[in-house]
Protein backbone atom coordinates (compact mmCIF):
# COMPACT_ATOMS: atom_id res chain seq x y z
CA UNK A 1 0.00 0.00 0.00
CA UNK A 2 1.38 3.38 -0.87
CA UNK A 3 1.13 6.54 1.16
CA UNK A 4 -1.50 9.20 0.52
CA UNK A 5 0.29 11.74 2.70
CA UNK A 6 3.88 11.91 3.89
CA UNK A 7 4.81 14.60 6.40
CA UNK A 8 8.48 14.93 7.29
CA UNK A 9 9.94 17.17 10.00
CA UNK A 10 7.27 19.83 9.83
CA UNK A 11 8.04 23.03 11.74
CA UNK A 12 5.82 26.11 11.75
CA UNK A 13 6.78 29.29 13.52
CA UNK A 14 4.70 32.45 13.91
CA UNK A 15 7.23 35.00 15.04
CA UNK A 16 8.55 33.76 18.34
CA UNK A 17 5.74 31.25 18.78
CA UNK A 18 6.36 27.76 17.44
CA UNK A 19 3.10 26.03 16.51
CA UNK A 20 4.66 22.83 15.17
CA UNK A 21 7.94 21.48 16.48
CA UNK A 22 8.96 18.77 14.05
CA UNK A 23 5.91 16.74 13.08
CA UNK A 24 6.35 13.58 10.98
CA UNK A 25 3.81 10.95 9.99
CA UNK A 26 2.42 9.07 7.02
CA UNK A 27 -1.16 8.33 6.02
CA UNK A 28 -1.74 5.18 4.06
CA UNK A 29 -4.03 5.01 1.09
CA UNK A 30 -7.53 3.88 1.97
CA UNK A 31 -7.37 4.31 5.73
CA UNK A 32 -9.16 6.60 8.14
CA UNK A 33 -6.44 8.47 9.93
CA UNK A 34 -7.17 10.60 12.95
CA UNK A 35 -5.25 13.45 14.53
CA UNK A 36 -6.29 13.83 18.11
CA UNK A 37 -5.41 16.55 20.55
CA UNK A 38 -6.68 19.50 22.57
CA UNK A 39 -7.30 22.94 21.07
CA UNK A 40 -4.04 24.62 20.18
CA UNK A 41 -2.13 21.34 19.79
CA UNK A 42 -1.36 22.17 16.15
CA UNK A 43 -3.91 19.93 14.41
CA UNK A 44 -5.39 22.61 12.18
CA UNK A 45 -1.99 24.09 11.36
CA UNK A 46 -0.80 20.65 10.25
CA UNK A 47 -3.87 20.19 8.04
CA UNK A 48 -3.57 23.67 6.55
CA UNK A 49 0.00 22.98 5.52
CA UNK A 50 -1.11 19.72 3.91
CA UNK A 51 -3.92 21.59 2.10
CA UNK A 52 -1.52 24.23 0.85
CA UNK A 53 -3.13 27.07 2.85
CA UNK A 54 0.02 27.72 4.86
CA UNK A 55 3.70 27.32 4.11
CA UNK A 56 5.80 25.31 6.52
CA UNK A 57 8.81 27.02 8.12
CA UNK A 58 10.69 23.76 7.76
CA UNK A 59 9.96 20.27 6.56
CA UNK A 60 8.47 18.55 3.56
CA UNK A 61 4.96 17.42 2.74
CA UNK A 62 3.97 15.10 -0.08
CA UNK A 63 0.31 14.55 -0.92
CA UNK A 64 -0.69 11.84 -3.41
CA UNK A 65 2.89 11.77 -4.62
CA UNK A 66 3.12 15.54 -5.23
CA UNK A 67 5.09 18.10 -3.25
CA UNK A 68 2.66 20.61 -1.69
CA UNK A 69 4.89 23.57 -2.36
CA UNK A 70 5.56 22.77 -6.00
CA UNK A 71 2.42 21.12 -7.25
CA UNK A 72 -0.32 22.63 -5.12
CA UNK A 73 -2.77 22.97 -7.98
CA UNK A 74 -2.44 19.30 -8.99
CA UNK A 75 -3.04 18.27 -5.39
CA UNK A 76 -6.03 20.58 -4.95
CA UNK A 77 -7.78 18.99 -7.90
CA UNK A 78 -7.53 15.53 -6.29
CA UNK A 79 -8.33 16.21 -2.63
CA UNK A 80 -11.47 17.32 -0.85
CA UNK A 81 -11.27 19.65 2.12
CA UNK A 82 -13.71 20.51 4.85
CA UNK A 83 -12.48 23.45 6.87
CA UNK A 84 -13.18 23.96 10.53
CA UNK A 85 -16.48 25.84 11.00
CA UNK A 86 -16.73 26.65 7.35
CA UNK A 87 -20.08 27.87 6.14
CA UNK A 88 -20.95 28.65 2.56
CA UNK A 89 -22.40 31.44 0.47
CA UNK A 90 -25.54 32.82 2.07
CA UNK A 91 -27.65 33.62 -0.94
CA UNK A 92 -27.23 30.46 -2.98
CA UNK A 93 -29.13 27.19 -2.69
CA UNK A 94 -27.30 23.99 -1.80
CA UNK A 95 -27.47 22.77 -5.39
CA UNK A 96 -26.16 26.11 -6.67
CA UNK A 97 -23.23 26.03 -4.27
CA UNK A 98 -22.30 22.49 -5.27
CA UNK A 99 -22.60 23.36 -8.95
CA UNK A 100 -20.42 26.45 -8.44
CA UNK A 101 -17.75 24.53 -6.51
CA UNK A 102 -17.86 21.79 -9.14
CA UNK A 103 -17.15 24.34 -11.85
CA UNK A 104 -13.72 24.96 -10.30
CA UNK A 105 -12.62 21.37 -10.97
CA UNK A 106 -11.79 19.60 -14.21
CA UNK A 107 -14.05 16.76 -13.15
CA UNK A 108 -16.95 16.98 -10.73
CA UNK A 109 -19.84 14.94 -9.35
CA UNK A 110 -23.54 15.60 -9.89
CA UNK A 111 -24.85 17.92 -7.14
CA UNK A 112 -28.01 15.82 -6.76
CA UNK A 113 -25.95 12.69 -6.23
CA UNK A 114 -23.80 14.40 -3.60
CA UNK A 115 -26.84 15.54 -1.65
CA UNK A 116 -28.17 12.00 -1.75
CA UNK A 117 -24.92 10.63 -0.29
CA UNK A 118 -25.22 12.98 2.71
CA UNK A 119 -28.98 12.52 3.04
CA UNK A 120 -29.99 16.05 2.03
CA UNK A 121 -31.77 15.25 -1.22
CA UNK A 122 -34.91 17.14 -0.24
CA UNK A 123 -32.96 20.26 0.78
CA UNK A 124 -31.43 21.05 -2.60
CA UNK A 125 -33.37 24.27 -3.03
CA UNK A 126 -32.76 25.44 0.53
CA UNK A 127 -30.05 27.80 1.61
CA UNK A 128 -27.35 26.98 4.12
CA UNK A 129 -28.88 29.16 6.83
CA UNK A 130 -32.09 27.13 6.63
CA UNK A 131 -30.29 23.94 7.70
CA UNK A 132 -29.78 22.56 11.20
CA UNK A 133 -26.21 22.46 12.47
CA UNK A 134 -26.00 18.74 11.80
CA UNK A 135 -27.33 19.13 8.26
CA UNK A 136 -24.95 22.01 7.66
CA UNK A 137 -22.01 19.89 8.72
CA UNK A 138 -23.15 17.06 6.44
CA UNK A 139 -23.44 19.58 3.64
CA UNK A 140 -19.87 20.78 4.11
CA UNK A 141 -18.79 17.15 3.85
CA UNK A 142 -20.79 16.84 0.62
CA UNK A 143 -19.06 19.97 -0.64
CA UNK A 144 -15.68 18.42 0.09
CA UNK A 145 -16.64 15.48 -2.15
CA UNK A 146 -17.61 17.62 -5.13
CA UNK A 147 -14.52 16.65 -7.19
CA UNK A 148 -14.79 12.93 -6.36
CA UNK A 149 -11.51 13.16 -4.44
CA UNK A 150 -9.05 10.38 -3.61
CA UNK A 151 -8.32 11.95 -0.25
CA UNK A 152 -10.69 13.84 2.05
CA UNK A 153 -9.44 16.04 4.88
CA UNK A 154 -12.00 16.88 7.56
CA UNK A 155 -11.12 19.35 10.29
CA UNK A 156 -13.19 18.62 13.41
CA UNK A 157 -16.21 17.47 11.45
CA UNK A 158 -18.35 16.75 14.51
CA UNK A 159 -17.51 19.66 16.79
CA UNK A 160 -20.67 21.27 18.07
CA UNK A 161 -22.98 18.43 17.03
CA UNK A 162 -25.40 16.63 19.33
CA UNK A 163 -24.74 12.88 19.87
CA UNK A 164 -27.31 11.76 17.30
CA UNK A 165 -25.97 14.10 14.60
CA UNK A 166 -22.45 13.01 15.48
CA UNK A 167 -23.32 9.36 14.95
CA UNK A 168 -24.96 10.21 11.62
CA UNK A 169 -21.77 11.90 10.54
CA UNK A 170 -19.70 8.91 11.61
CA UNK A 171 -21.84 6.73 9.36
CA UNK A 172 -21.29 9.20 6.55
CA UNK A 173 -17.53 9.13 7.04
CA UNK A 174 -17.58 5.30 7.00
CA UNK A 175 -19.65 5.44 3.84
CA UNK A 176 -17.06 7.72 2.20
CA UNK A 177 -14.31 5.40 3.37
CA UNK A 178 -16.09 2.41 1.85
CA UNK A 179 -15.74 4.12 -1.53
CA UNK A 180 -11.99 3.68 -1.26
CA UNK A 181 -11.39 7.27 -0.28
CA UNK A 182 -8.61 8.00 2.20
CA UNK A 183 -9.94 10.06 5.11
CA UNK A 184 -7.92 12.28 7.43
CA UNK A 185 -9.80 13.88 10.28
CA UNK A 186 -9.04 15.80 13.42
CA UNK A 187 -11.03 15.58 16.58
CA UNK A 188 -10.88 16.25 20.23
CA UNK A 189 -13.37 13.54 21.01
CA UNK A 190 -11.73 10.33 22.13
CA UNK A 191 -14.71 8.11 21.49
CA UNK A 192 -14.90 9.46 17.96
CA UNK A 193 -11.31 8.58 17.21
CA UNK A 194 -11.80 5.15 18.78
CA UNK A 195 -14.95 4.52 16.78
CA UNK A 196 -13.73 5.74 13.40
CA UNK A 197 -9.99 5.69 12.99
CA UNK A 198 -7.78 2.83 11.94
CA UNK A 199 -4.74 4.77 12.98
CA UNK A 200 -4.33 7.73 15.21
CA UNK A 201 -1.74 10.39 15.90
CA UNK A 202 -1.96 12.06 19.29
CA UNK A 203 -0.77 15.65 19.24
CA UNK A 204 0.07 18.00 22.05
CA UNK A 205 1.97 21.30 22.05
CA UNK A 206 2.99 21.04 18.41
CA UNK A 207 4.36 17.51 18.64
CA UNK A 208 3.08 14.04 17.91
CA UNK A 209 3.31 12.14 21.19
CA UNK A 210 2.08 8.78 19.91
CA UNK A 211 0.94 7.22 16.68
CA UNK A 212 -0.71 3.80 16.36
CA UNK A 213 -4.07 2.04 16.13
CA UNK A 214 -6.50 2.99 18.94
CA UNK A 215 -6.40 -0.53 20.44
CA UNK A 216 -2.65 -0.68 20.58
CA UNK A 217 -2.42 2.81 22.03
CA UNK A 218 -4.72 1.74 24.84
CA UNK A 219 -2.75 -1.45 25.35
CA UNK A 220 0.45 0.44 25.67
CA UNK A 221 -0.39 2.41 28.74
CA UNK A 222 -0.05 1.22 32.29
CA UNK A 223 -3.08 2.63 34.00
CA UNK A 224 -5.71 0.46 32.45
CA UNK A 225 -8.42 0.56 35.04
CA UNK A 226 -10.35 3.55 36.07
CA UNK A 227 -12.44 3.24 39.21
CA UNK A 228 -15.10 5.86 39.67
CA UNK A 229 -16.67 6.10 43.08
CA UNK A 230 -19.26 8.34 44.61
CA UNK A 231 -19.36 8.39 48.41
CA UNK A 232 -22.03 9.53 50.83
CA UNK A 233 -19.58 11.80 52.68
CA UNK A 234 -16.37 13.41 51.51
CA UNK A 235 -13.35 11.24 52.17
CA UNK A 236 -11.33 12.01 55.26
CA UNK A 237 -7.64 12.57 54.74
CA UNK A 238 -6.93 9.15 56.31
CA UNK A 239 -9.20 7.46 53.84
CA UNK A 240 -7.63 9.38 50.98
CA UNK A 241 -4.21 8.38 52.14
CA UNK A 242 -5.20 4.74 52.27
CA UNK A 243 -6.64 4.66 48.77
CA UNK A 244 -3.70 6.51 47.29
CA UNK A 245 -1.41 3.67 48.28
CA UNK A 246 -2.26 1.52 45.27
CA UNK A 247 -3.65 4.07 42.83
CA UNK A 248 -3.68 7.74 41.93
CA UNK A 249 -6.65 9.47 43.46
CA UNK A 250 -8.39 12.48 42.05
CA UNK A 251 -11.39 14.40 43.24
CA UNK A 252 -13.52 14.57 40.16
CA UNK A 253 -15.19 17.90 39.45
CA UNK A 254 -18.06 17.47 37.06
CA UNK A 255 -18.83 13.86 37.91
CA UNK A 256 -21.35 14.21 40.70
CA UNK A 257 -24.69 15.86 40.37
CA UNK A 258 -25.19 19.10 42.17
CA UNK A 259 -27.67 17.59 44.67
CA UNK A 260 -24.91 15.54 46.27
CA UNK A 261 -23.37 18.43 48.13
CA UNK A 262 -22.23 16.41 51.07
CA UNK A 263 -21.01 13.49 49.05
CA UNK A 264 -17.73 13.16 47.16
CA UNK A 265 -16.97 11.97 43.69
CA UNK A 266 -13.56 10.48 43.01
CA UNK A 267 -11.60 8.79 40.27
CA UNK A 268 -8.91 6.22 40.98
CA UNK A 269 -6.49 5.23 38.28
CA UNK A 270 -4.55 2.07 38.84
CA UNK A 271 -2.19 -0.34 37.16
CA UNK A 272 -3.62 -2.95 34.92
CA UNK A 273 -2.48 -5.82 37.20
CA UNK A 274 -5.09 -7.95 39.02
CA UNK A 275 -3.10 -7.39 42.22
CA UNK A 276 -3.55 -3.66 42.03
CA UNK A 277 -7.25 -4.09 41.33
CA UNK A 278 -7.74 -6.48 44.26
CA UNK A 279 -5.74 -4.33 46.62
CA UNK A 280 -7.74 -1.26 45.70
CA UNK A 281 -11.11 -2.95 46.14
CA UNK A 282 -9.92 -4.32 49.45
CA UNK A 283 -8.90 -0.89 50.66
CA UNK A 284 -12.21 0.63 49.64
CA UNK A 285 -14.01 -2.01 51.71
CA UNK A 286 -11.68 -1.65 54.72
CA UNK A 287 -11.78 2.12 54.83
CA UNK A 288 -15.43 2.06 55.84
CA UNK A 289 -16.54 4.39 53.05
CA UNK A 290 -20.27 4.48 52.43
CA UNK A 291 -20.51 4.02 48.69
CA UNK A 292 -23.31 5.48 46.65
CA UNK A 293 -21.91 4.40 43.33
CA UNK A 294 -18.95 2.40 42.02
CA UNK A 295 -17.77 1.83 38.45
CA UNK A 296 -14.74 -0.01 37.17
CA UNK A 297 -13.89 0.92 33.60
CA UNK A 298 -11.23 -0.20 31.14
CA UNK A 299 -8.81 2.40 29.91
CA UNK A 300 -9.91 4.69 27.09
CA UNK A 301 -8.00 7.00 24.81
CA UNK A 302 -8.76 9.63 27.38
CA UNK A 303 -6.42 7.78 29.72
CA UNK A 304 -3.90 7.36 26.95
CA UNK A 305 -3.85 11.06 26.47
CA UNK A 306 -3.54 11.74 30.17
CA UNK A 307 -0.77 9.21 30.41
CA UNK A 308 1.15 10.64 27.48
CA UNK A 309 0.80 14.32 28.20
CA UNK A 310 -0.16 14.61 31.84
CA UNK A 311 -3.14 16.73 30.79
CA UNK A 312 -6.84 16.17 30.47
CA UNK A 313 -7.87 16.24 26.84
CA UNK A 314 -10.89 18.46 27.22
CA UNK A 315 -9.65 21.61 28.83
Amino acid sequence: MSEAIRVEGLVKRYGSFTALEGVSFGVEEGEIFGILGPNGAGKTTTLEIIEGLQRPSEGRVTVLGNDVLKEAKKIKARIGVQLQSSAYFNYLSLLEILRLLGSFYPHSMQPEELLEVVGLSDKGKNRVDQLSIGQRQRFTVAASLVNDPELVILDEPTTGLDPQARRNLWDLIREIHSRKVTVVLTSHYMEEAEALCQRLAIMDHGRIVAIDSPDRLIDRIETTYTVKLVTADPLTSDQQHLLAKSATLQKSEGGSDSAADESGSYVLRLNKTPEALNATIDRIVRSGITLKHLEILPATLEDVFLDLTGNELRD
Binding site: E51, G52, L53, K73, K76, A77, I79, V81, L83, Q84, S85, S86, A87, Y88, F89, N90, L101, F104, Y105, P106, N147
Partner: peptide, 17 residues
Protein backbone atom coordinates in the same frame (compact mmCIF):
# COMPACT_ATOMS: atom_id res chain seq x y z
CA UNK B 1 -15.54 40.56 5.30
CA UNK B 2 -18.42 38.11 5.48
CA UNK B 3 -16.56 35.62 3.28
CA UNK B 4 -13.58 35.85 5.53
CA UNK B 5 -15.67 35.27 8.65
CA UNK B 6 -17.29 32.24 7.05
CA UNK B 7 -13.91 30.93 5.83
CA UNK B 8 -15.23 31.11 2.28
CA UNK B 9 -12.01 32.75 1.10
CA UNK B 10 -10.03 29.85 2.56
CA UNK B 11 -12.48 27.41 1.05
CA UNK B 12 -11.78 28.94 -2.35
CA UNK B 13 -8.05 28.60 -1.77
CA UNK B 14 -8.28 24.84 -1.31
CA UNK B 15 -9.88 24.42 -4.73
CA UNK B 16 -7.81 24.55 -7.91
CA UNK B 17 -9.50 27.84 -8.85
Amino acid sequence: SNYRNLSILKRMLVTPL
